[in-house]
Structures are given as C-alpha cells and as structure tokens.
Design a protein around this nucleic acid. Structure first.
Lengths: 205, 205
DNA sequence: AGTTTGAAGTTTACAATATAAACATCTGCT
DNA sequence: AGCAGATGTTTATATTGTAAACTTCAAACT
C-alpha cells in the first residue's frame, strides 16, 4: 500500500475507487465493472467518481496503471530474491509475471485488452507496460555479455519472449489451450514446456 | 457466401445481422457493437434480432464462429497454394493467419478476447478455434516424419508456436510493441524476426 | 380458393447504466 | 468567522439490452 495524502470527505476516494474496481473485476469479470457498483462499494453516490475521473475509461486506465505497478512490484521482488545471476533474475521475474497473469486472469485481461475502453484505446495504454520490459532487455543484455545467452539484439529477443508469454497466458486464461492437449499433460507440464522452449530459443542449455 | 434457405420477410436476416455486425466492429471497434446499430444497418427494428439470437452474447458468438470460418478459409487457401511440402504449407497458412489477424484487428480481438461476452464466456468459445490448430499439428507431425523439424510432441510445439503468434499479433495490434523498438526497426522487420525465431525453435535452418 | 398458424418483424415499455447539471457540504486559508 | 473551491449528492437524460403484446405474411391444410 502506498502512502497517500489524506483527502476531504472520504479519506482518499480516488484510491478507494481503484481498489474497489479491482475487487469487482476479480469478482464479476471485466464486464461487471460499472461506475455505480464501484461507487457503491466505496460507499459513495454513483456520481461521486466523476469528481476523480472524467469518465469510465479514465477510471479503467487508472486501474490498469495500478495493475502495472503491482506487476512491477511482484517482478522486482522476485528478481531481488533470485541472487546475482541475471539469467536467474530474468527467470524469476518471468515466473512472477506468469503467476500474476494466471492468478488474476480478469485483471490481467483488463490490463492488456483494450476491449473495455470505449473511447480512448491503445494510445492511452501504450506506455503503461514499458518498465518491466525494459528491465528484461537489460537482463538479456547482461546475460549476453556473460556469454550465457545467444548473441543478437536483446530488444528483439525480448519482444519474441514477451509475445510467447503473453500469448500463452492469454490463451490459457481463456481455456483455449486445454482442449488441444486433452489429458495427455497437466497445465503445469504445458507451461513448463513453453518456458523451456523460450530458454532453448535463447540458446541456454 | 454460403447458400442459405430463403426466409420469410427479410430474406436471411440472421446472416445479414452477422454481416452487419462484422462491418460495425470494423468501423467502430468491439465497443461500438450494439444490437440496435446492427438491426438498423440490416434495415429492421431494434427488436428483430431477438427472433434470431436469444441475446447479444449469442449474436457475438455467431460473429466469432463466422470469423473462424473465414480464418479457416483463408488458411486453407494459402495452404493449397503452397505446394506439397508440409513445412511450406505450414508457413503459408501461418502467414495467412498473421495477415488476417493484423488486417482485421478489431475482429480478431473479438474472436479471441472473451471481453465482449457478458454472461457466457470462455466455455462458449472453447471449441471454435480447434480446426486450424489441429491442421497445424498435422503439418508438424508430417514435417517431423520427413526429418525437417525437430522431434518432440507436435502438439506441444504447436501450442508454443500458437502462443507466440497470438501474443505477437495481440501486442502488435494494441501498439504495445512499437515503443519497445522505436525506430530501430520497421514493424515488418520485427515480425520477420519473430517468425524466424519460431522456425529456429523448430530446428529448421 | 379460403382459413389457419406459427415464424418473423414491429411497437411499446422498462430497467440499468453513463454522464451532465444543479445543488449541498466540508476543509483549509485568510 | 467567513470564503472559495474541492468533494459529494440529487435529479435528470440519453443509450442500450431485453421483455411483452401486437401485426403480418408465407405456407400447409382443408
């Protein structure tokens, strides 16, 4: 929880609204997110949110931004706990990413799918996901310098990896994969296979 | 266009509604899809669609189903035009997939993101995407038998590839990638890099 | 041919929601 | 103490999904 400046009536309604929105998304899915429900859960009238967000899209954007903060925190925590090896840090933060994405599927969807945004779309989201990715590129560059990862532009490598990971969790969260492998594997095994393929792609044995 | 049985008043309103929905999604994005707009474009009253679809979700599901039909057609066409080599067929149909996904971003999003569906979600969509994927697995198996693709369960290979491709087009369509590579590369170059990485992963040189 | 009937379409009505506008209240500054 | 502006509330409106009652017309049966 971040430290917030005390506010007038409610305390800090803006934060409370974002918090409430998170819960509602988790409970009812992205479609269940209504301004009125958010306001009610925060204990204010249905018009109160408009004092803090111009419209629903802006509330969602704040929620998304908060989501990337949380994701970044988790990835940083995992990285810190992983020791000095940049590849181990890379792996640990990647695992944190997967765990976040699959632990809060509805939230993850909101963060990445522009679907909920009516007016403002991609433009508004463009920047939010940069931080984690940039750090990953750094990891790769360092691992390359240490000779444990195949040479090549780490930015392109990172894009490829991010595509695989994002695609995998998106499809997995939507149950688009399980019918492909039936009962031959557990979801865990499939996940491990994909992760292994990523490391193979980097030339790590 | 499939042959359809003639209907009462309109001719074939069901198909016309799906067609109209496609256009609206393309013009206004997924959020712009309203029953009333669809009905108006098809030239009927706003309640007429309810004679053909129990609710909005079912209209969307029909649109999604139609989308996978179209996608399958394009992939089949590309595969047929690609000669006998299963790997070439695989590559051609993959290219068709990418071209579809990036040519109709809003439509692609509706097909894969459950976001638009309020009540019925993933369960309803689970089956729609099977056909193309199964054919891809066959391609891989044949290419393995011919010794041009690394051994291993082709289902798992396919899942990994599908994850990468789906993740890439999703991120690219949402402008989530371009700020990562700035002006160092063209989008085309990045796409080619990702495709190359996929083939490298299969052990194809 | 005339009648019936059910599918297809229309009109009307209603509830939920986003959002605007006018009004009320509280807090910090003077 | 009093003011001003930020924060909330109430009331109102337009959009939308959807239900219900009514209409119309093609086709089957007599």
């Amino acid at each position: 929880m971040a430290i917030v400046k005390a506010a007038y009536h409610h305390g800090d309604l803006r934060t409370a609204l974002i918090e409430a929105a998170l819960e509602i998304i988790d409970e009812f899915g992205p479609q269940g997110l209504t301004i009125r429900k958010v306001a009610h859960r925060a204990g204010v009238s249905h018009a109160a949110p408009y004092r803090h967000f111009p419209d629903k899209d802006d509330l969602i954007l704040a929620v998304v931004e908060r989501g990337f903060e949380l994701l970044d925190e988790e990835m940083d925590r995992a990285r810190s706990a992983a020791g000095d090896d940049p590849l181990a840090q890379f792996a640990a933060s990647g695992e944190a990413y997967l765990s976040f994405a699959m632990g809060y599927p509805a939230y993850y969807r909101v963060m990445f799918s522009g679907d909920l945004l009516a007016s403002k779309g991609n433009e508004a989201l463009r920047h939010t996901s940069a931080a984690s990715f940039v750090r990953m590129i750094d990891d790769l560059r360092m691992a390359q310098d240490m000779g444990i990862v195949r040479q090549g532009d780490p930015t392109l490598q990172a894009i490829s990896i991010v595509s695989t990971v994002h695609g995998f969790v998106s499809l997995a969260n939507d149950n688009r994969l399980n019918h492909l492998y039936g009962n031959s594997y557990t979801p865990e095994q499939v996940k491990d296979f994909v992760i292994t393929a990523i490391f193979e792609g980097l030339g790590v044995n």
